[in-house]
Each structure stands twice: as structure tokens, then as C-alpha cells.
Design a protein around this nucleic acid. Sequence first.
DNA 1: GTAAGGGTTCACGCCGGCGTGAAGGTCAAG
DNA 2: CTTGACCTTCACGCCGGCGTGAACCCTTAC
Lengths: 116, 116
Amino acid sequence: MLISELAELTGVSARALRHYEDCGLLTPARSGSGYRVYTESDVTRVAQIRTMISAGLGTSAIRRYLDCVRTGDHGTFLEMCPDLRAELDSLARRLDARQAELREKRSRLDRLTSAG
Amino acid sequence: MLISELAELTGVSARALRHYEDCGLLTPARSGSGYRVYTESDVTRVAQIRTMISAGLGTSAIRRYLDCVRTGDHGTFLEMCPDLRAELDSLARRLDARQAELREKRSRLDRLTSAG
DNA sequence: GTAAGGGTTCACGCCGGCGTGAAGGTCAAG
DNA sequence: CTTGACCTTCACGCCGGCGTGAACCCTTAC
Ligand SMILES: [Zn+2]
Ligand SMILES: [Zn+2]
Ligand SMILES: [Zn+2]
Ligand SMILES: [Zn+2]
């Protein structure tokens, strides 16, 4: 399928799909005229990518994640690369930190609005 | 006082103080040689600015806030400009939205890490 | 004189997923 | 042939408080 069809199937913009290729998350084949040609398995793959992006992962982490999954050199998903596991943990900590920071902001804003 | 002294008194970098002037939050006098000359009241003012920035306010909102306070055309702080009050409310809503979004990210990340 | 330690303005970089053109090729349909 | 809907690559913009130079002036101390 071509890019617009994959875009419609996944609900992801064509620009985003091209961006995912730039980041190494997708490697579609090319037709004779240079058009990107996707497989049906790319639909699943894009869904996975969207899930991870919505979890806060950056494209580089996603790429390593997908590579780790594809090569399967670490068995199950639970046995991830140590550095990948460490990155996920550090991301969790950063999310917690940002959450606490947001709570602080929110309370400070309340104090500003009420006490002026 | 000169900029480095105000920076040391407030714990804010000289670059940030110049930035605040660019945004209209500070209007220091100038010496004959062009140096910024600050008043002691600027120490309090910078503290107010830092409080509002740590509450998530942008410089433009802070400027309108300070203008509203300085002109005093709306009485007490509790009687703020309607649009300023609206902006603070919308900021609160955005903070809540980002907080919910972060919670979602966090739970999705947990699901990723555990269920793979 | 000169070196050091202030000060000044100007301006790019960051962080990153993606929007949004611009300029141009491909391919169907009328 | 021409229109139009696709596709391509290249590249800047966003969001914003501030770091971080570069290039240059003022003042004091030696
Ligand atoms: Zn691996
Ligand atoms: Zn007012
Ligand atoms: Zn970037
Ligand atoms: Zn900006």
C-alpha cells in the first residue's frame, strides 16, 4: 500500500510516517517511481510506535526497542537490553519528577490567584 | 546597584535579568556609561517575577499582571483584570490537562515495561 | 601601558515530534 | 494534452526561558 492508505488506516499523518522513516522506525520498500510501499504488518508496527510515543518514549529509544524486539537476542520482552531497561526506568523517574513539578506549579498558581 | 549585585542578591542570573528587561518586566535606569542601575525595590520585584514564573506564568502574562498591580486601576489583587483572571484560569486548566496527560503517559509506560 | 574584571548588544542554540509550505515528478481520467 | 490527485525531497517554524558564546566598551589596579 502507499503512504496515504497507511495514513488513513492508522490515523497517523503521512508527514509523521515519513518522519518515522527518517528516525529509522519504518523501512518501507520503494516502487519504480520512488513511491514508499508499505506492508500490512506496518499497520501493527505503526500502532506499536504510537503506543510508545504516547508513553513518552523518544524516537531513538523506540528504534532501539524495535531493534531489540526484531533481533530477539534478549528473549522475551521482559528480558530487555539492560541499557534499554535503564532508559525506561529513567524515563519513569523523569515523568514522576515532571508530575511533582506540575503539582508544585499548580499549588503556587492557586496561592497566587487566591492570596494575590 | 549594578546587575551582578542584583543577580547575587536574588540568585537569578544576569542573563535572566536582561531577559526580564527585554520582556518588559524590569526597567532599570542607565548610568552615564550605559550600565543598568537597579533599585532595592527591584529585589522584591524579581522575587515576585520568580514566584510567578515558578507558577507557570509566561512573561507576557507577568507583564500584564505587574502593569495591573502598578496602575492599581482594579483595586486589590483579588479584583484582577477580567482577562488576566481568565488567563490564570486557563493556565490552571492547562496545568490540570498536562497533569492528566502525564498520568496517562506514566501508566502506559508501566504497562509497556511490565507487559512488554 | 596593560591586564583583569566588570559592563553592553546581537544572535544562535536548545528540546523534538511534526506542521507546513515550496518546487517538482507520476499517473490516472476526461 | 491537460487537469488534478497523488507522490517525492528539502527545509524552516513551533514553544519559550534562558545558556552561551562573540565582539566590544569602562573602570580600576599594577
Ligand atoms: Zn536487545
Ligand atoms: Zn488591571
Ligand atoms: Zn529540533
Ligand atoms: Zn523561541
